[in-house]
Each structure stands twice: as C-alpha cells, then as structure tokens.
C-alpha cells in the first residue's frame, strides 16, 4: 500500500512531438514512493511514450523528470536502475530462464556469489523455480511474462515500469497474473508504474490511476474517486458506461426499475436487452422533460426475476435523488 506520501518521481511539463503531432502534451505528474500507479488511456494516447521517457529510452522531449528532486534527464537508462517489462516480454530466446535473469544481474555488476541467491529468490517470488532451466519458447505466455517480471525486479530497481504487461494474455491467465502482480508489488514494495488500456485492470490494481487522452493527462485520483467522480464525460465513459442526464453522469447500475410511478420516475421503451452474466443490461428509449434520450440500465440478475423486459415493452425507472430537474423540484417530492 501507499507508504508515507514521499514524492519519488516528478514529471514536470513534459511534452513530446512526433513530426507535428503531440505524443505528450504538458504532462505534470508526481509519483509517490511505494505506490502502484496506472497510466490508463485508449491506444495511441501517449502512455508508452511517457513510460519510455521515464525509462530514459526517449531522449528528445521538452520538460523535466526529477527523481528525489534531482533532474535525471541526462542519465542513461541503465544508470537509472528502473526495471522495465514490455508487452512482448522481450526475453532473450537463446537464454534459459535463469540465464535471462543472470544477464540483468551481471549487467548491473552484481557480485558473483550473490547472483545465484538472487536468482533463486526472484524465481521463488514469481513461482518459477521449477522452470529455471527452460527456454522462453518452452513456457506459456503467462509464465514468460512472469520471467520478464522476475528479470526486471531481480536487480532491485527503484521503480518498476510495466508496459501493458498483461494485454497479450488470455482472459483467465490475465486475471490470475493480476493477483500475483499485485502481491509481488506489495511484498517487495517497489514503486510501480503500469501502462494499460484496460480500465478494469487499472481499477483493480492501482493505488492511483492517471487517465490520459490525446496526449494529455485528464484525471489523477484513486480508483474509487475516478469511478465515482469522473471529471469529464470522456473519463466517465472510458471507466465504464455512463448516462449523461442534465449534465450529470449516472452509472447504469444507479438507474432503478420501479413498478409504480413516483415524482422522479420516468417511462421508456425497451430497445435492447442483453444478458451479461451477473447483471442484465437494458437500453431504453425515453423522453425526459421533452428531450429524447437513450438510457442504459444495469439490473442485477436476481432483481426483477419475474419480469422479462421484452423489446418494445414500456417500463418505469427512477433516477437517483441528486438528478432532479428544476421542474421536478418544484413539484416537491
């Protein structure tokens, strides 16, 4: 978890252009010691570029990167001692699991006696002891990603940078690895910055989420805060589905189906009904205060089990208390 809020990395006014288009535009971001920060945003918004700048792999940019208050822009990647994991794993195929890890330790000039013990301990941490002699292509995608992680954390980096580490994996493996990743990060307490375009991944792993769009940072908060109080419709919609009613963002699960008419009750016609496992998503065509709207409603599967919500059916729904039009307020509920 987040320790004392000691500021470790500071990104100041960082901008990067490719040709005439911005890959990053005026990014300001603080990273605290020991935290797990997720950079979340759609593909092409500049997340990897920011991560590569932090790693020292990109050198032509505007702005500054500070570590413990000191500029590190001119410091080479290796001397920064930031561990990095790429989406493609980037394991050396001609080296066994332990040789891959040894490669990193040797490059960081670990003493010979310590290397073996270190390999042992990271393999244990990542649950790979039995695979140490195997080569990357003899391992599954999930195992390969764990080797990449082991190789990155073995030299005890000050910051761990992860670029979409789970994106190439199947859903099942991804869920499993997510738990492991979180556990490992907590065990060793390394400050971690992970790039992802998967909002569920970001919300479930991160201490804080930094949402990016079109080369800009649009919101930084805890996952709960991002989910509950998105500052823009982009964030709201990217984090999950949202209804925009009277310029307020209403989550589909906050719209309630009701049987009787109240004063904040509206009616609509079902246009689609999708079964989604533990809930049911219904789209309604509705008219709220003379404005045509499409409303999305999520109904837990054990609610309203007696009803079918067929297409064309007319139903009633309640909006949350805070979403009340001036006209309704006057009616005094």
């Amino acid at each position: 978890m987040m320790k004392a809020n000691k500021n470790l990395i500071q990104i100041e006014n960082v901008s990067k252009k490719y040709g005439n288009t911005f890959a990053l535009k005026n990014i300001n971001l603080e990273i605290f010691e020991g935290e797990f920060l997720c950079l979340l945003g759609p593909s092409g918004c500049g997340k990897s570029t920011l991560l590569r700048i932090l790693a020292g792999l990109e050198t032509n940019y505007d702005g500054k990167i500070l570590k413990n208050g000191k500029e590190i822009d001119a410091i080479e990647p290796g001397k920064r001692k930031f561990g990095m994991v790429f989406q493609s794993y980037s394991l050396f195929p001609n080296m066994s699991v332990e040789k891959n890890i040894e490669f990193a330790l040797k490059a960081f000039k670990y003493e010979k006696q310590k290397i073996n013990a270190k390999i042992e301990s990271v393999l244990e941490l990542t649950n790979l002891l039995e695979h140490r002699k195997k080569f990357p292509n003899q391992l599954s995608g999930g195992q390969q990603q764990r080797v990449a992680l082991a190789r990155a954390i073995a030299p005890e980096p000050t910051v761990l940078l992860l670029d979409e580490p789970l994106s190439a994996l199947d859903f099942k493996v991804r869920e499993e690895l997510r738990q492991q990743l979180k556990k490992i990060q907590r065990d060793i307490g390394v400050t971690t910055i992970m790039v992802t375009h998967d909002q569920e991944e970001a919300l479930s792993l991160a201490d804080r989420v930094a949402v990016m769009n079109h080369a800009e940072l649009v919101q930084i908060s805890t996952p709960e805060e991002i989910y509950r109080n998105p500052k823009s419709f982009f964030v709201a919609n990217f984090i999950g589905t949202m209804n925009n009613i009277y310029n307020k963002f209403i989550r589909p699960e906050d719209v309630k189906i009701s049987d009787k008419k109240g004063c904040n009750t509206h009616s609509g016609i079902v246009i689609s009904n999708e079964f989604r496992g533990f809930y049911r998503r219904i789209k309604l065509k509705s008219e709220i205060e003379n404005e045509k709207k499409e409303i999305i409603v999520d109904i837990p599967i054990f609610h309203h089990q007696d009803r079918s919500f067929n297409e064309g059916e007319s139903i009633h729904f309640n909006l949350p208390q805070e979403v009340v039009s001036e006209q309704i307020k006057e009616r005094i509920c």
Binding site: G56, L57, F108
Partner: peptide, 10 residues
C-alpha cells in the same frame, strides 16, 4: 531487445 537491455544496464 535493445531497449530492454538498456534498462538492464547492458
């Protein structure tokens, strides 16, 4: 590969 190795000080 080269980027990965660079972050590993190789």
């Amino acid at each position: 590969f080269q980027a990965a190795a660079q972050t590993m000080n190789a």
